[in-house]
Design a protein around this nucleic acid. Structure first.
Length: 958
RNA sequence: GCCCCGGUGGUGGAAUUGGUAGACACGCAGGACUUAAAAUCCUGUGACCCGCAACGGUCGUAACGGUUCAACUCCGUUCCGGGGCACCA
């Protein structure tokens, strides 16, 4: 009886499907456990081996929890709106819904091949109207809410309107500021438009204007990574900044709660740190500087270091601020204009990453409010308009970036921190005693901060300010393939659409952009006639709340019933990549908080525990090609050169004609009638070859010629043993590098169980690692060996009912302990090796006893469900192993009375001594000193100290 | 540039709390079985030194420095690789 994994896996997948083995009911009587994978985008390329890494981990954990008696929700669905489908539609005219449908079908069949325990009845797709109906509904909740600063939570905007109608908006103390404050009478007298504008300033989903990367030639907005060196990645067209009307989510109001919430969740410290860095809470002061010659204008800066105000040597304002043009001098006008034009073409990413210092003096001067010093005002791309006030006061002695700028432009540097500043490197210390700092002289910086802020406030030139680096999230896209906003515009006023949700995405003739940077929806006359919003929602809209829909995905009356969300509650375990660290995770945390504030759900953090999976990177194979090109650029002859035959050192130092001659000598002897004069150029290239036709690094030349028939006549210079070897290159797994490996192929060749265990065996889930198919044989061998514990090729089932020995029980219980612990702490790679060890040990013991093997099958079920199910049923069980009870570890079987202690001399292990576990320090010392090897090292001397750590080791210090 | 993570044999990795570095595999080498192959099994395998060998020794976790009886693990500096930086998902 052989391990026929193909038949076994097909049979069991069918059985599980027919019996609805993975259907999850909202059975409120059982304890629940919610395991979630990050939403995949169904790309046209299908799954490669990198995708399922996290899915396998979560599947193992889900099955493990099920064996432990939990009602486990482990759903899967698709984040099916997105740019790639739209781009494909633009290129081919195919409707994104069509291609998306096809892609999803591919993904699902690939996922099923691996044997995941998804309940497909709970599948959701963000582009399905029955789903985005509720995305739109939640958007309206956001639109119709505001953040109350007193209660620090979202409230219905109707309450705010009521307040304005009865009390107005007046300051708690101090004089009302016109334009900001108003009385109830004033409010009631405002026009509808005026009222709408005021309310827009408080809505959680609001409309504003923001700068985007605008590409005139493509007529569209580009993502930062679609812009390279100021031109579009596709086509190389110029890209400039353009202001467009945009929807935003007021996530900044939740900054503090998003920060505090991190204390209540189990995310890695790195993840928490990334999120809090993104939120970027800082405290400091806003300070108003006067501008020489502009009595009405103020230059407002935000600084975290008001104590350094006497060290300000120049100011820098963001180039996009209008102020630049208002204050620039005549002499500097040309230089400023040139610089602004340069910056306009730069993406924010490039500006931040730029090492080269650039900037221009505006010709204007600010005035230090404390000592009246004249401070030159510069503009430079390293200051971004979106941070703080978009202007900074530069203190070169305390800030490295400011110092480099000052040095580059020869701006004199004031030292306010005495010997803490050496003139070479800025020192951001807070411990220096201030000098050259007027009334702050002699104070330690740390303390001077408060004194400075007080002075600013007393003199009315600034105030204490808490600042967040986080900005409100842009929530609209000028695209087709996204959720339409249920919003209409009349006379410049945004109103909730009055029709029934969903507002269905209409079909369009073509997917190209609408006029004036509007999205494709603006091309539809009927849409525009209804005055509907022409933007659509961004990719993260649907993924911000999908974990709630899984709980109750068929509900037509609510996004999710309160009973279902109260039961399933938070996601207990969320698995996904760190690339979502700040985007998706923060938005879904915010949406959860809003839904909680408005009373729709009972918890305000969506994910209790987060585990980050690493990426699987590709392991490409590259071969050397040498071609002779003739004068008309046609190819005369092509050769491929194996790694060891690449004599590039031979041509080092040669040039032009000599290289050609040498190369022809080396590689082109076989070409007859070759005239050197006909050769215009020798071309060297490294070509990616499909990793699937390479064995290790050895190329299958015949397969290559079949794949690339244009090289059918090329000569291959192999190693002396006849093999043709490739170079390796570790890079992103991508179709264009021919380094993708399809899980379907591996499942077909080795089986899903082998594939699952091999992915886990590769290394820790959270670490990135290169893919290498070679090692999969080892895992497959293990499963065959495991099978042979139960069945023999000729004799069939060989399991007996004999009583296990103490040694066998010890092996079993060590395995239970190890595998349970490793599964619990997500160390699946060592879990797999635990299975290998127990299998090796039981094979050595020739143990085929049911009482040992049956519990082992249950342990294996989460990792390799098919083989476990088959053997379970071969043993005569009529129930599914999926619902067996997880074996319990019993200490008594593994108890030891002695241990082989390593004995180190001065920290280096020299020998080993077996000593009773209950031995005392004194007994151990006596034993150690009688040991021959220890005596040898002591060489007659007595040891200074003997360190004995129970159950660990012994160290003799000489 | 800024923030986060990582770097251990030829390869993937193990070492859970500062306590035997290299578990478990891959690969490689040798052997058994076989007419042969596949499959399977056995032995060896970090580098170096001395030696016929048993034994023994030195070095070794990116590099350098520090703390400690003891460092892959803690601290500092540097180098290299990966992820994120707000319209890819």
């Amino acid at each position: 009886m052989e391990y026929d994994f193909r038949k076994i896996e097909k049979d069991w997948q069918k059985k599980w499907k027919e019996s609805n083995a993975y259907r999850v009911t909202n059975d409120f009587s059982k304890p629940k456990y919610y395991v979630l994978d990050m939403f995949p985008y169904p790309s046209g390329a299908g799954l490669h081996v990198g995708h399922p890494l996290g899915y396998i981990a979560s599947d193992i954990y889900s099955r493990y929890k099920r064996l432990k008696g939990f009602n486990v929700l482990h759903p899967m669905g698709f984040d099916s709106f997105g740019l790639p489908a739209e781009q494909y539609a633009l290129d081919t005219g195919q409707h994104p819904a069509e291609t998306t449908k096809k892609n999803i079908a591919t993904f699902k069949s690939q996922l099923d091949n691996i044997g995941f325990c998804y309940d497909w009845e709970r599948e959701v797709q963000t582009s399905d109207p029955s789903y985005y109906k509720w995305t739109q509904w939640i958007f309206l909740q956001l639109f119709n809410s505001y953040f109350c600063h007193t209660e620090k939570k979202a409230l219905p905007i109707s309450l705010l309107i009521k307040k304005y109608e009865t009390k107005g908006a007046m300051p708690k103390n101090g004089e009302p500021i016109p334009g900001k404050h108003f009385t109830a009478e004033q409010w009631n007298a405002f026009s509808e438009k005026e009222q709408a504008d005021i309310l827009m300033n408080r809505r959680l989903a609001y409309c504003g204007y923001g700068e985007v990367n605008w590409c005139e030639a493509l007529g569209t907005v580009l993502a930062n990574d679609e812009v390279v060196n100021g031109v579009s990645e596709r086509g190389g067209h110029p890209v400039v900044k353009k202001k467009l009307r945009q929807w935003y989510l007021r996530i900044t109001e939740y900054a503090d709660r998003l920060l505090e919430g991190l204390n209540t969740v189990d995310f890695s410290d790195a993840m928490k740190e990334m999120q809090s860095n993104w939120i970027g809470k800082s405290s400091g002061a806003e300070i108003d500087f006067g501008i020489l010659g502009f009595p009405g204008s103020k230059l407002r800066v935000y600084t975290t270091r008001p104590d350094t105000i006497f060290g300000v040597d120049f100011m820098v304002i963001a180039p996009e601020l209008d102020l630049v043009n208002e204050i620039r001098s005549e002499e500097q006008a040309v230089a400023v204009d040139e610089y602004l034009a340069y910056v306009k073409s730069r993406s924010e990413r490039e500006r931040m990453a730029e090492k080269k210092i650039s900037g221009v003096f505006t010709g204007a001067f600010a005035v230090n409010p404390f000592n009246g010093a004249r401070i030159p005002i510069w503009t430079s791309e390293y200051v971004l308009a979106g941070y703080g006030t978009g202007s900074i006061m530069a203190v070169p002695c305390g800030d490295e970036r400011d110092l480099k700028f000052a040095k580059h432009f020869n701006i004199p540097v004031t030292n306010i921190i005495g010997s803490h500043f050496n003139g070479e490197e800025a020192n951001p210390t807070k411990d220096a005693i201030l000098e050259n700092s007027g009334f702050l002289d002699g104070l330690v910086m740390r303390e001077a901060m408060e004194v400075a802020i007080k002075a600013l406030e007393d003199n009315g030139i600034g105030q204490r300010k808490v600042n967040f680096k986080m900005r409100d999230a842009a929530f609209s896209r000028q695209r087709y393939w996204g959720e339409p906003f249920p919003i209409t515009w009349k006379d410049g006023i945004a109103k909730e659409w009055t029709g029934d949700l969903p507002l269905v995405l209409p079909d369009v003739e073509k997917y190209s952009p609408g006029p004036d940077g509007q999205g494709p929806l603006a091309n539809i006359p009927e849409w525009v006639a209804q005055e509907l919003e022409t933007n659509t929602m961004p990719g993260y809209a649907g993924s911000s709340w999908y974990f709630l829909r899984y709980m109750d995905n068929k509900n037509e009356n609510e996004f999710c019933s309160r009973a279902a969300s109260d039961y399933w509650n938070q996601v207990d375990l969320y698995i996904g990549g760190t690339e979502h660290a700040v985007g998706h995770l923060l938005y879904s945390r915010m949406w959860t908080k809003v839904l909680y504030d408005l009373g729709h759900i009972g918890f305000d953090e969506p994910f209790r525990r987060l585990v980050n999976q690493g990426m699987i990177v590709g392991n490409s194979r590259v071969i050397n090609r040498i071609q002779l090109l003739s004068n008309d650029d046609s190819v005369i002859s092509t050769v491929f050169v194996s790694v060891g035959k690449n004599e590039h050192s031979e041509v080092d130092g040669l040039d032009g004609h000599d290289i050609t001659k040498k190369i022809v000598d080396l590689y082109f002897n076989h070409v007859s009638a070759l005239a050197l004069d006909d050769i215009k150029q020798v071309s060297f290239s490294a070509l990616h070859v499909d990793v699937n036709i390479v064995d290790g690094i050895e190329l299958d030349i015949q397969a290559y010629k079949k794949w690339r028939p244009e090289y059918i006549d090329a000569k291959f210079f192999t190693e002396d043993d006849g093999r043709f070897l490739c170079h390796e290159r570790i890079e992103k797994m991508s179709k264009r590098y021919f380094n993708t490996v399809n899980p379907d192929d591996l499942c077909a060749k080795y089986g899903a169980d082998t594939f699952r265990m091999y992915e886990m065996f590769l290394g820790p889930v959270e670490m990135s690692k290169p893919w290498d198919t070679k090692g999969i044989e080892g895992v497959h061998r293990f499963l065959k060996k495991f099978w042979r514990l139960f069945a023999d090729e000729t004799k069939g089932l060989i399991v007996n009912n004999d009583e296990p020995t103490a040694a066998e029980l010890k092996v079993l219980h060590n395995a239970i302990r190890k595998i349970e612990q490793d599964t619990e702490r997500f160390s699946f790679n060592t879990g797999v090796s635990g299975f290998m060890i127990v299998t090796n040990e039981l094979t050595d013991l020739k143990c085929h006893k049911r009482k040992i093997l049956e519990p082992l099958l249950i342990l294996l079920t989460p990792y390799a469900p098919h083989i476990a199910a088959e053997l379970w049923s071969l043993l005569g069980n009529t129930t599914f192993v999926l619902d067996a009870a997880y074996p319990t570890f019993e200490e008594k079987y593994v108890k030891e009375t002695s241990k082989a202690y390593p004995v180190a001399i001065n920290g280096k292990t020299r020998t080993e001594l077996t000593i009773a576990l209950d031995a005392t320090q004194q007994q151990v010392e006596e034993l150690v000193l009688t040991d021959e090897i220890v005596k040898k090292w002591l060489d007659g001397k007595s040891p200074k100290k003997i360190i004995f750590v129970k159950n660990k080791m012994i160290n003799v210090v000489i």
